[in-house]
């Protein structure tokens, strides 16, 4: 099961992130999790939102370059060693993490980690076999 993330290209100049947020806010879109990858020239904003189709549409309308990417949202206990266990499982099967970011659930003792793997399908198989909970986009929003 995969979740969908929206990626937005940001040129490295002031006000660009603010502009994305303004566009999303005006369209009543809520962001659940985000991360920014940055280089000296540009950044990539990665977000998980409540209404991805609408978010894509309004961002495109405002001339942003956007893409939709499958990511894997994994629920882990918010306690020491929670992430370590997951990474060990993946490492044992030689699955690489391209990037990841995390947030804490509001209604439980768990954290959700958003992963982008080099081989998403293999990662899902490994995680499911180990009984790890993988969340869909909708489920992320209910937590």
């Amino acid at each position: 099961m995969k979740a969908e993330q929206i990626s937005v290209f940001l040129e490295n100049k002031s006000g660009r992130l603010a502009e994305v947020m303004r566009v999303l806010g005006a369209a009543q879109i809520n962001i659940r999790a985000l991360s920014i990858a940055d280089t000296s020239d540009f950044g990539i904003l990665r977000i998980i939102v409540n209404d991805k189709d609408k978010a894509l549409a309004v961002l495109k309308d405002n001339n942003f370059t956007v893409s939709k990417t499958d990511v894997i949202a994994v629920e882990v206990p918010d306690s020491p060693g929670g992430l370590s266990k997951i990474l060990d499982l993946l490492d044992a099967r030689k699955v690489n993490v391209e990037y990841m970011y995390a947030f804490i659930e509001r209604h439980s003792e768990n954290a959700v980690i958003i992963f982008r793997f080099d081989e998403n399908d293999k990662a899902i198989e490994v995680l499911q076999k180990a009984g790890i909970t993988i969340l869909s986009s909708q489920e992320i929003y209910k937590r």
Partner: peptide, 14 residues
Amino acid sequence: VNEKIFSDKVKKLE
């Protein structure tokens, strides 16, 4: 940057 070359991965753009 257009959608054809854009990627969520920094590496690809670099």
